[in-house]
Design a binder for these strands. Structure first.
Length: 361
DNA sequence: AACTCGTGGCC
DNA sequence: TGGCCAAGAGT
């Protein structure tokens, strides 16, 4: 006997009314009671930031972005470079580039207002099936099936779906569609995600407090943690290369902008060997800028990307050179504002620590 | 369908 | 410690 849809949505919404998390981008219960809809711009911005990213990591970035760019027109007026600088550290940088493209499209093609249907939203850059459904449901009350990782887990358990992901995505979406109510679809979606984040967790789910425990087939089977079943993952290879931290007499660091495609596209880095996901680079100073300088070995840093681990040998030297077209000297006060991904911050910290260590020694 | 694309927190 | 995985999208 499968759980009845009306019972699931009613119990879940009642639970949400008591346990909803208060988040910057949500409207509170009082506003919802008065029929005040959340701002589609803020819903969109939060949903893009939350793609594969935790609530805790997003909070400060969301506050910074909405203070700096309070509406979609302001964001469209900003440069991609400034958006990448503000996004630095949050990861998945194609999201930031698509954010700019999407803001431009909303202004140019939709008169500065987000379209109000999942179908139209789906056509915008950086908005896929999940984000289109989430914006449509939360901001526009469309009963779209909102399926993220939380919902996949909740629904796979509720119906004891043992088909491994990603093959299970289609049946899970269909089940979610049957559960989604015509009334309060946005609250239903957010309730499913809150439930997955706080009760129906990947490890040690708190089934004793779950509003859906009566109908849950995974709990009935005695092992809710077994769901969702996932296909085995591939091994993560180690790649190697070298990074070169060159400073001049003013203490400025030589930086450069990465190309427009691939890993960390458009972001800032110190000069490095040509490491990528498929080929190692040299781990010595053979590819360093200003090769005649005295390069000091500062040791290595390690950084884990989604599908490979990168170990970079860090070298440091002092000297002057004329930056080429995509390079510049970044003064000490400017470095914090550069679009430096975390892996490059590790490189700079390693070079700096090594310098202070030498001074002590 | 399979692969690329970041980062941080958790146990 | 290292594997897991988090409000996925694009190709």
């Amino acid at each position: 006997m499968i759980p009845a849809p009306e019972s699931v949505s009613a119990r879940l919404l009642a639970w949400y009314d008591r346990h909803a998390r208060e988040l910057l981008w949500r409207t509170g219960p009082a506003e919802r009671a008065r029929g005040i809809r959340p701002d589609p711009y803020r819903v969109w911005l939060s949903e893009v930031m939350l793609q594969q990213t935790t609530v805790a990591a997003v909070k400060d970035y969301f506050a910074k972005f909405t203070a700096k760019w309070p509406d979609v027109a302001a964001l469209a007026a900003a440069s991609e470079e400034d958006i990448l600088k503000a996004w630095a550290g949050l990861g998945y940088y194609s999201r930031a580039r698509n954010l700019k493209k999407c803001a431009d499209a909303v202004v140019a093609e939709h008169g500065g207002n987000f379209p109000g249907t999942a179908n139209a939203l789906r056509a915008l850059p950086g908005i896929g099936d999940y984000t289109a459904a989430a914006i449509a449901a939360i901001a526009f009350d469309e009963p779209a099936a909102v399926v993220d990782g939380n919902v996949e887990r909740v629904v796979a358990r509720l119906f004891a779906i043992d088909t491994p992901l990603p093959a299970a995505k289609k049946p899970i979406r269909e089940r979610t569609g049957t559960l989604t109510p015509q009334d309060r679809p946005g609250d239903f979606a957010q309730a499913m995600m809150d439930l997955g984040a706080t009760v129906c967790t990947p490890k040690r789910p708190a089934c004793i407090t779950c509003p859906l425990r009566d109908g849950c087939l995974a709990l009935k089977a005695g092992d809710p943690e077994r769901f969702p079943v996932r296909a085995p993952k591939r091994a993560r290879p180690v790649r190697r290369g070298a990074a070169y931290v060159l400073t001049n007499d003013d203490g400025a660091v030589l930086l450069e902008r990465r190309g427009p495609d691939g890993l960390l596209a458009g972001m800032t880095q110190v000069p490095t060997t040509g490491w990528n996901a498929r080929a190692d680079g040299a781990t010595d100073t053979s590819e360093a800028p200003l090769p005649q300088a005295h390069w000091t070995d500062c040791g290595a840093i390690s950084h884990v990307f989604t599908h490979f681990e990168l170990r970079l040998s860090v070298f440091r030297a002092e000297g002057e050179l004329e930056p080429d077209a995509h390079q510049w000297w970044s003064e000490p006060d400017a470095i914090a504002g550069e679009a430096l991904p975390t892996v490059m911050k590790k490189v700079l910290v390693r070079a700096l620590q090594h310098e202070s260590g030498n001074e002590r020694g």
